[in-house]
Computed example of a mutant assay.
Amino acid sequence: MNRKVEVTIYGAEVLCPSCVNLPSSKETYEWLEAAISRKYPEQPFTISYVDIHQPPENQAKQQFAQRVIEEDMFYPVVLIEEEIVGEGNPKLKTIYAEMEKYGYTPA
């Protein structure tokens, strides 16, 4: 593995209109953190949740949060190293494939 990958989940407290029967953004964040940790044990990564309506002071995160709102993206939006890998109902297979591009090896 080359380096610690950053996974960022952008979402909101309220479900997006097209995501009514799906888990909340926060639930998706928790689920992904657990799933990635199980798939790649003892392989460090960072994962963070960004509320699109109250983003942190980080300018890049603020800009992407604004983009999610302006482009009416389905949230949660999952990024790995600034690459969108899932929207609305992210697929583990796609996320795992992206992680493995960075040298992560499944358990």
Rank of each mutant, 00 (worst) to 15 (best):
V77Y: 06
E87I: 07
V85E: 13
K91L: 09
G88A: 05
V78T: 12
Y102C: 00
E83P: 00
E70C: 02
I95L: 10
N89C: 03
V77G: 06
E87G: 06
M73H: 09
P76Q: 02
I84N: 02
V77L: 01
V77K: 02
Y102G: 05
M73V: 00
M73D: 08
L92H: 11
I95P: 05
Y102D: 08
F74W: 02
Y75Q: 04
E87N: 03
G88K: 01
E71H: 08
E100W: 11
P76A: 01
E100L: 09
E70V: 05
D72E: 11
G86Y: 07
G86A: 12
E81A: 07
P90V: 07
I80R: 03
I84V: 15
K91F: 14
G86N: 06
T94E: 15
P76F: 00
E87V: 08
T94F: 14
P76K: 01
M73I: 00
I80T: 04
I80Y: 03
L92D: 04
M99W: 14
Y75I: 04
T94C: 06
E100Q: 15
V77I: 04
V77Q: 02
F74P: 00
N89A: 13
E87R: 14
P76H: 05
G86S: 06
E82V: 04
D72Q: 12
I84T: 13
T94M: 14
I95H: 10
K93E: 13
M73F: 12
A97T: 12
Y96C: 05
V77S: 03
G103C: 12
G86V: 06
E71Y: 06
T94R: 14
V77D: 07
E70T: 08
G88Y: 04
P90Y: 04
E98L: 02
I80H: 04
N89T: 03
E83S: 08
E100P: 15
Y96E: 09
D72N: 10
Y96L: 06
G88V: 09
E82M: 06
I80S: 00
F74Y: 00
V78H: 05
E83C: 03
E71W: 06
E83T: 14
E70I: 00
E81W: 04
P76M: 00
Y102W: 13
M73E: 03
E81H: 07
E71L: 09
M99C: 12
G86C: 06
P76W: 01
T94D: 15
L92P: 11
V78K: 06
E70S: 13
A97F: 09
K93N: 08
F74N: 10
V77R: 02
K91R: 15
M73Y: 11
P90I: 07
E82Q: 13
K101M: 05
E81T: 02
K101C: 02
Y102V: 02
V78N: 03
G103S: 13
G86R: 05
P90L: 09
E71D: 10
P76G: 01
E81Q: 10
M73R: 11
K101P: 09
G103M: 11
F74D: 04
V78P: 09
F74L: 11
E83Y: 03
